[in-house]
Design a protein around this nucleic acid. Structure first.
Lengths: 130, 130
DNA sequence: GGACTATACATGCATGCGCATACATTGCAA
DNA sequence: TTGCAATGTATGCGCATGCATGTATAGTCC
């Protein structure tokens, strides 16, 4: 067991399988219900959620890449989709004109608030049980 | 709903974020190194690994769908790719001609055995540290 | 200033995924 | 038997992703 032999290859592999299973179970349920009730994907929800935590002007995309687990190109398009839906607006940074500030809109905050209820519900149901 | 208990919405959400981060970190490292050293994706490795555990004739795709966290269509194509690489062979089930048995080949077992070394290494490095 | 490198974001492209559906086979009922 | 629903797999399609690259701006060294 894990006390006598804590880190054998086998126990690491089965721990990884558990992580995969858990992630897949929760993610699939979230994806389904967020999409159905709020037309948001899990990644879109996550991005909105991170943006909502930033004060004021939002934050640079570069900073979001670190928060969110996604390539820079995927994030660029993700913000584009949220922008097209009016949930986020983009603004070029004045002191570094390479940078883009993304900022959640009021409509974005509304959609997020509603989706958070669904997320809490799904997590309560799926995060801890089989 | 939540009593004076630790499972508030906030703690559930942050637990989910931790799970996302952990999954992303390990998965990205595995994907990179399995691909680089063995030309296998994480899902391909996982499928080979499950198939190797089945005795004798392999198992039906339907059964693999339950083991692996993937849609039926994705699994069908995944097995197709493994087949094209000679790591798996397919056989129609004799008693139910709708079913397909997938079975790992000797070459598949070799690739898997080599990849398992890499996997163990990556897991030892990434599963438990930040 | 001019040239070169580094950084931030956008985009062409190839790929894997899920959904819906098609197709083949099985089983069940009338 | 015939007809029809159910099951197992394959496939057309649209979409999100990562990689490589393009474009613009910033910073550095001469």
């Amino acid at each position: 067991m894990s006390f006598a032999m804590p880190n054998t290859d086998v126990s690491l592999a089965s721990e990884w399988r558990d992580l995969l299973a858990r992630h897949a179970r929760v993610n699939a349920a979230l994806e389904r219900e967020l999409q159905r009730d709020h037309r948001l994907s899990v990644t879109e929800f996550e991005a909105l959620s991170r943006l909502a935590e930033k004060d004021g002007d939002g934050c640079r995309l570069q900073q979001l890449v670190d928060d969110i687990h996604m390539s820079q190109s995927a994030l660029s398009r993700l913000i584009g989709r949220l922008h097209d839906e009016g949930l986020v607006h983009r603004r070029t940074c004045s002191d570094d004109r390479r940078g883009i500030f993304a900022c959640i809109t009021d409509e974005g905050r509304e959609r997020l608030a509603q989706a958070e209820v669904t997320q809490a519900d799904v997590l309560a149901r799926t995060l801890h049980d089989a």
